[in-house]
Design a protein around this nucleic acid. Structure first.
Lengths: 208, 208
DNA sequence: AACAAAACTAAACAAGTGTTTAATTTAAAC
DNA sequence: GTTTAAATTAAACACTTGTTTAGTTTTGTT
């Protein structure tokens, strides 16, 4: 898919992403963005119309291809539990390498202030949930997964665990001795991902 | 413990809590707080020194007695798994009835901006983690809990699941048909709490 | 080279920000 | 009732905010 944004716009979007993620939408000024991106402050209005619409553009720019990735996973010939594991890995990997935008989504679109722009984001979430549901029901039909789980609450467990870990980054860096960015990323890729997979597997398979 | 704040200060703190939770720290102005609390804008500086220190006071005001609650739970004569369940219930209940401040903590103390004030909050988290650790190790010694779990990652699973659910409130209200505030709260108290307890139990007990 | 559209700029705009000041009112102590 | 301290106020402070304006420069087309 060809992007609708030109080089200059992308440059602005990526600076905005970094700053919004670091300091929040309200905590970031247009002058702030302009300075880092080395552009004139009028360029944001010129290219995006307003600060608010810059945020909208940023979300479009970053969330456009997740849907496809999920759908191709569904088609793969794998056992349900392996599909779940792969889905978790895909999610964590993706969110972790697009921390900025997901942090922004997490922060900005939960407050009452920006409820309007919520619709497109809500559709994305519904689609993702549907994918998870398909896999779990497949496993339930095969008799592998237990049936008394609340599927819509599994997504919060997967994503919430990651987010809560990542939102408390300084705390866990200190606690787990993850001094460098590499160590931190590696811990997410191995231990945290494994923990989430282990948790969901236990939940789906354990018989009380 | 007697509170260090007088009636007027508490009035300001509670208005600030609501507004910070709704619109974020940066999204809330002192004039905004003053208007809702029906006080003069100079009173915030007069009583708290600055907007930043108002936030600090708010956190002290709201997190002072959690520690005691946890410690008395540790002393109770219960099976490890029941202690875990009670801890989860205590947490969810507490956070759910103090949504405002926990949302603020979640939002404001993760960005790089406010790393200084982080220390007191970090101590609180470390204490909480210690409590969880004590209970789990007790269960491991008794041979009830498996030993290959990463304890520091269990807290993110408990809290993260709740937060992710709550931060996407409009989405889940719609998805699960929780039209009234009562229905929403009830869902948290029963289904969400149960889901988290079920998840952690499965993780701790399930043998692969 | 001449023209037109797009890209870019510095400056100004009105409105909002947190904080301080100096004055006034209220309350407490004697 | 007078004095002293605390509480409260309106106004001003200096600064930052998002956006617009009226130009200038650059780019592409003929």
């Amino acid at each position: 898919m060809k992007s609708n944004f030109n080089d200059k716009q992308i440059q602005i979007l990526e600076v905005a992403e970094t700053l919004f993620a670091e300091k929040g939408f309200d905590g970031t000024s247009i002058r702030n963005i302009a300075k880092v991106a080395k552009i004139n402050i009028a360029m944001v209005s010129y290219y995006f119309g307003s600060k608010e619409r810059l945020l909208e553009s940023l979300i479009v720019y970053r969330t456009s291809d997740l849907k496809n990735q999920l759908e191709s996973l569904l088609q793969e010939d794998l056992e349900p539990i392996d599909k779940i594991n792969k889905l978790i890995e895909l999610y964590i990997n993706r969110i972790n390498s697009n921390r900025g935008i997901y942090r922004i989504l997490h922060f900005e679109f939960t407050s009452k202030k920006r409820e309007q722009n919520l619709q497109a984001f809500s559709e994305l979430k519904k689609g993702n949930l549907k994918s998870l549901e398909t896999i779990i029901e497949e496993g339930q039909k095969k008799g592998i997964f237990r049936k008394d789980v609340i599927i819509p609450l599994i997504a919060p467990t997967i994503l919430g665990t990651f987010f809560h870990f990542h939102m408390n980054k300084p705390f866990f860096e200190n606690l787990l001795n993850l001094k460098t960015e590499d160590l931190y990323n590696n811990y997410i890729k191995t231990n945290l991902t494994k923990h989430i997979q282990q948790t969901i597997k236990a939940l789906l398979i354990y018989e009380s």
